[in-house]
Computed example of a mutant assay.
Amino acid sequence: MFDATRPTHAPADHPKVKMGRVGILLANLGTPDDYTYWPMRRYLNEFLSDKRVIDYPAWKWQPILQAIILTKRPFTSGAAYKSIWDHEKGESPLMLITKDQTAKIRSAMKARFGDRVMVDFCMRYGNPSTKSKVREMVAEGCDRILFFPLYPQYAGATTATANDQFFRALMEETWQPASRTVPAYFDRPEYIDALAASIERAYAGVDTRPDILVCSYHGMPERYLQQGDPYHCQCVKTTRLLKERLGWDDSQIVSTFQSRFGPEEWLKPYTVDHVAELARQGKKNIAVVAPAFSADCIETLEEINEEIRESFEEAGGETFTYIPCLNDDDAHISALAQVIEDNLKGWLD
């Protein structure tokens, strides 16, 4: 462990401080502390008040959010969370998976760099907060922090807002650590290989080979694309690289977008509508994977595996195979560890 020491050449009465470590702070979207009304309301309020997520003027949006949405949505979202909640451990799948990912990455980094690194995770919304984890890392002697949003594709509503919160936390530190943020890794060969391997395993384990693989990405308003957000382009490229790695043609794979919110047009095709259309076209056996999510969560376990599955089956679909996110799969952890090592160059070699 790194003990507090007096800085070199400091006077005898200088307080001892910890220094010399590198923090690796993983970040994901977040999760409510519980699926009951008030924890859900607190979480949704923080999430839906983020200007990166909903960019309407506050004078217009906040009355709608506070008076209408947050009186009803905590109940419906809470019911969805309850359906996937780990009641024995008292936490959501995203929290449990992120803890497992962190533990494995911590082990890999310790084997590579020893006690020179400190690995932890935070959530953009909810707990553990980004601010609290930055504070802990500084207190433990991290004078450099690598901040890693666990989103393969960059989006303003995910990667950027996570970075924003990290920078806000740094603003409160008297002695700020040097900092780096990890860029999107959607086209990293290690990530594509891990994703392809998970699909090959899933296809090998089903009795009927799917007619098509639906790559369902989280959606965003089309307007954000026009404003310069690269998310759509990076999603489409992920699908293309995956197709090439699998050796497939265009008829075997498609990109779609899920999780619409509000009245405006979002990126298309919409997953929930497209799977129904595939069923009506005679593609009765499909598989769905969610390459934009590093860990299974409400959008995959409830929305894809329940709502989107139901849309497909009601339209005449027969076999619906949901392929889990990479989660703490060893190939995924190895890919993330490689991304981290590449971004530590110059700090730790």
Rank of each mutant, 00 (worst) to 15 (best):
D3H: 11
D3V: 15
T5H: 14
T8Q: 01
A12N: 06
V17L: 06
R21M: 03
G23E: 02
L25E: 00
A27Q: 04
T36V: 10
Y37I: 06
R41N: 10
R41I: 02
N45Q: 11
N45I: 00
F47C: 02
R52Y: 09
V53L: 13
D55K: 02
P57W: 07
W59N: 08
Q62A: 01
P63W: 09
I64G: 01
A67K: 13
I68H: 07
I69E: 10
I69D: 10
R73F: 14
P74H: 11
T76V: 09
Y81E: 02
D86W: 13
G90Q: 07
S92R: 02
P93S: 09
M95H: 14
M95F: 11
T98M: 12
K99S: 11
Q101K: 02
A103Y: 00
A103P: 00
S107E: 13
S107G: 02
S107C: 05
K110G: 04
F113C: 02
G126T: 00
S132Y: 01
V134D: 05
E136Y: 05
M137R: 03
E140H: 12
C142G: 05
C142S: 08
F147M: 07
P149A: 12
L150Y: 09
Y151Q: 05
P152S: 08
A155S: 15
A160N: 13
N163S: 02
N163A: 14
F166P: 08
F167R: 12
A169R: 02
L170T: 02
R180W: 02
V182C: 12
P183T: 05
D187S: 15
D193K: 14
A194M: 01
S198E: 11
Y203G: 03
G205D: 13
V206G: 08
P210L: 11
D211G: 06
L213T: 10
V214I: 13
Y217F: 15
H218T: 06
P221V: 05
Y224N: 09
G228Q: 13
Y231K: 13
H232W: 06
V236E: 15
L242K: 13
L242S: 11
K243P: 04
E244L: 07
I253N: 09
S259G: 09
F261H: 04
P263I: 03
E264M: 10
E264S: 13
E264Q: 08
W266Y: 00
W266T: 03
L267T: 08
L267S: 00
P269K: 00
T271N: 01
A276R: 03
V288C: 03
P291F: 14
F293P: 10
I298Y: 07
L301Q: 01
N305S: 12
N305V: 01
S311W: 01
A315L: 04
G317C: 00
T319G: 09
T321H: 15
T321K: 03
L326C: 03
D328Q: 10
A331T: 11
H332Y: 14
Q338H: 04
D342L: 05
G346N: 12
G346K: 06
D349M: 04
